[in-house]
Design a protein around this nucleic acid. Structure first.
Length: 738
DNA sequence: GTTCTAGAAC
DNA sequence: GTTCTAGAAC
């Protein structure tokens, strides 16, 4: 069929029909189409908030436990929803015909498959995407624009012939609103008439501004409509289309969409406190945020609050947003905003004169998240200014610090004050955690937000009365210079504040036991556990059994052990000390009777480490075993702690040497002496752990970034590693402790 | 479009 | 353990 004949040019006409036959019970799959930033999720949200029949939103970005998943997972999830009698939104870009073909096939389940095309100007999608993704470190504005542009270049507008029974084109915000209304109004028995709706003109998918720019008058629209896809999406950000309209028509709270440039409204931007590294329950935290925001907004006049998070997939943001809507919190006064809190104005267009910092109790720079970012962005001025006011902060308290005008954050972003806040710590891997005591945790978190908002209010009133800048009632919000009993100094070294948030928390959540305490450790079972070794895993076994055949790669051959350089070294120096005993495949096989062998392995390893140290005293060595090695035949790793190697390529590599998966030789020997067998740790969780620097414990989003960091990190080796003489280092003490 | 991860094969 | 590569992320 020709598209022209199917297209209904009367785009405002909404056809809702009722039928009495079985068709009237047909469920609907709405395949949304649009570039990042086109408003797909918002569309779903707006419909679902007021729908008259049950909808399920299948979002590829979050389908895998909050993480991005696959198309197949989306299909599966859609089928399940349909089976339970629900209508489905497919929330993914679906710009290419092939990408959406799987969803059209759902038609086979006796459902109507609709398309809703959010074909908004590229400029709008780009500006929204920039705001959302500007945080990703290396995805700056221009790059985000490039991503949207490239996606739009591939855009193939849907046709009825693909299998859609109904297609709705939205080319403006008001089109979107109309479409939302249509789907919202759909009762359980209603169906929508088939056909194409909303396409202005055959050539309307060419953006008007670009049309003018390119001086194109007409573009033939025939069955080959996709032919134009390359031209129509050339985004020209300089096109002068009226823009005020879009920003005004969107009034519901949507990610970054309804931010208005109200320079005169003082705004506090704040991160979610305690939900990152301190692992506070997100649901509880979001309740408290909404409660406290509501309370505060009731007391304050002309001021705004903005909860900020880096990730547009942020669970805490979406929870808070949802609850704020339910509680009827004025969306003009409380925003949820995706972006870097240190670049809200320059990158996000949101002017916030006061920002909150998820501080650590020592009020020092460092960590990996908001705290590090704010101290970095502000420069040394902030640290100095902070130090002048207080030396530490207790959980539940906030400290207002006026930012000197020399600070970069002041100059670039217009931030006049930073309010440090410390929330409760629920993370068992951090000192003095509240041990799941949410009664206390919630209390402290409430106090934290109260202190923060009071600090904000007091700053405003001080500014308003133009009283001397030094007269602020700081003491009210600051603490004594003693941390009290919250963080005993012995544990200071382990204390780190927020790191990269989003999915990493979820990943690490499951392994508290495995990482933190003995509960997660397991003794090697009495019986030798079955393990199937792949053929590739026998290399070391072959060497151990027949050293003389491998003299070329062995650097030492003894009666009980042989030594070789790891074929794929993960650091400057990386040796293996290999037991020669047959049948001793791995640590799980080791018993008391093998102690002398283990001691020999350790001694030989240490000897080599010291030899290398005599050549390069800056090296630091660690000797240990993998809990569950891939290569058969018990082998001890002797590895320098620089981890400077092209062979270190993935998370498993890193975590196998930098988590509890790596068992220090000295501890293994001690354990076997005491208990007759070693304690092993479960690799499933440990190897999938977030990537953290072994020195400063900062978290990093991927291996390249981690490697870049560790090549520069000067932090001292953590005390935990220095315990029990687990490290072999130069006599002079190349490693100093703080 | 390039970068990065993660799963499969070996 | 590595290599290869699809596809997710940017």
């Amino acid at each position: 069929m020709e598209i022209d004949s199917e297209t209904n040019s009367n785009e405002k006409k909404i056809v809702v029909e009722k039928e009495e036959d079985e068709k009237s019970n047909k469920d609907i799959v709405v395949v949304l189409m649009g570039a990042p930033g086109s408003g797909k999720s918002t569309f779903c949200e707006h419909v679902m908030n007021a729908a008259r029949r049950p909808w399920v939103r299948v979002c590829q970005d979050t389908i895998a436990n909050g993480k991005a998943g696959t198309k197949a997972q989306c299909v599966k999830s859609a089928v399940e929803a349909l089976k339970s009698g629900k209508c489905v939104f497919i929330d993914r870009c679906n710009l290419e015909r092939e990408q959406r073909s799987e969803f059209v096939k759902l038609e086979g389940l006796k459902v109507d498959v609709h398309a809703v095309v959010l074909d908004l100007p590229a400029r709008i999608c780009i500006s929204r995407s920039v705001k959302r993704t500007g945080h990703e470190g290396n995805l700056q504005g221009g790059k985000a624009a490039a991503v949207v542009n490239r996606m739009l270049l591939k855009k193939e507008l849907p046709k009825l012939s693909e299998g859609f029974s109904r297609i709705t084109y939205c080319q403006s915000e008001s089109d979107v609103e109309d479409a939302v209304s249509v789907y919202k109004a759909l009762g359980p028995l209603d169906i929508l008439a088939p056909g194409c709706y909303g396409q202005k003109k055959p050539d309307a998918k060419i953006q008007l501004g670009i049309m003018r720019f390119l001086k194109k008058v007409e573009v033939p629209e025939t069955a080959g409509s996709t032919k134009n896809s390359a031209e129509d999406a050339i985004p020209k950000q300089e096109t002068k289309e009226p823009s005020s309209k879009e920003s005004e028509t969107v009034t519901l709270p949507v990610e970054n969409e309804d931010v208005e440039m109200k320079k005169d409204v003082p705004t506090l931007a704040f991160p979610s406190i305690s939900t990152s590294d301190f692992q506070f329950n997100l649901d509880k935290a979001s309740d408290i945020i909404v409660e406290k925001v509501d309370e505060f907004l009731g007391k304050i006049g002309n001021a705004r609050l903005a909860l900020v998070d880096l990730s547009h997939r942020s669970k805490i943001l979406s929870l808070v947003k949802e609850k704020a809507v339910k509680k009827n919190i004025d969306s003009a006064k409380f925003l949820t905003f995706v972006g870097d809190i240190t670049q809200l104005y320059t990158e996000g267009g949101l002017r916030c004169t006061i920002i909150a910092n998820a501080a650590n109790w020592r009020l020092k720079p460092g960590g990996g998240g908001v705290n590090a970012a704010i101290f970095n962005a502000a420069g040394p001025d902030l640290e100095i200014a902070t130090k002048e006011i207080a030396g530490s902060l207790s959980p539940g308290r906030a400290l207002v610090v006026p930012l000197p005008s020399t600070s970069a954050l002041y100059r670039k972003e217009g931030v006049t004050h930073v309010i440090h806040v410390l929330g409760p710590n629920m993370n068992p891997d951090r000192p003095n955690f509240l041990n799941n005591d949410y009664d206390k945790g919630c209390k402290v978190l409430r106090e934290a937000y109260s202190s923060l908002f009071d600090g904000f209010a007091s700053t405003l009133s001080n500014q308003a009365t133009k009283s001397a800048s030094g007269s602020m009632d700081l003491d009210k919000y600051s603490l004594e210079k003693h941390p009290g009993d919250h963080f005993p100094s012995t544990n200071i070294k382990n204390k780190r504040e927020d790191a990269y948030e989003h999915e990493r928390i979820k990943k690490s959540r499951g392994l508290k036991n495995a990482t933190g305490n003995e509960d997660g450790m397991s003794y090697a079972t009495e019986k030798k556990p079955e393990k199937t070794w792949g053929s590739w895993s026998l290399a070391l076994y072959n060497i151990a059994m027949n050293p003389e055949r491998h003299k070329n790669i062995l650097i030492e051959i003894l009666d009980d052990v042989v030594v070789l350089n790891d074929l794929y070294p993960k650091a400057e120096k990386h040796l293996l000390v290999l037991a020669r005993k047959d049948g001793l495949d791995r640590l799980a096989d080791v018993r008391e009777e093998h102690l002398p062998l283990l001691k020999t392995m350790h001694d030989v390893g240490e000897k080599w480490a010291k030899k290398f140290l005599s050549e390069d005293p800056s090296l630091i060595f660690r000797l240990g075993y993998h809990s569950d090695p891939s290569m058969r035949q018990l082998h001890l790793h002797v590895i320098s702690q620089d981890f400077n190697s092209t062979h270190l390529k993935n998370k498993k590599h890193w975590n196998s040497f930098n988590s509890l998966f790596f068992l220090d030789s000295v501890n293994v020997i001690e354990e076997i002496s005491k208990h007759g067998r070693p304690k092993l740790n479960d690799g499933d969780n440990l190897l999938a752990m977030e990537l953290r620097c072994h020195r400063c414990r900062s978290a990093h989003p991927n291996i390249p970034r981690l490697k870049s960091h560790i090549s520069k990190c000067q932090a001292p080796i953590p005390a935990t590693l220095l315990e029990n003489d687990c490290l072999v280092l130069a006599e002079s003490g190349a490693v100093s402790q703080t």
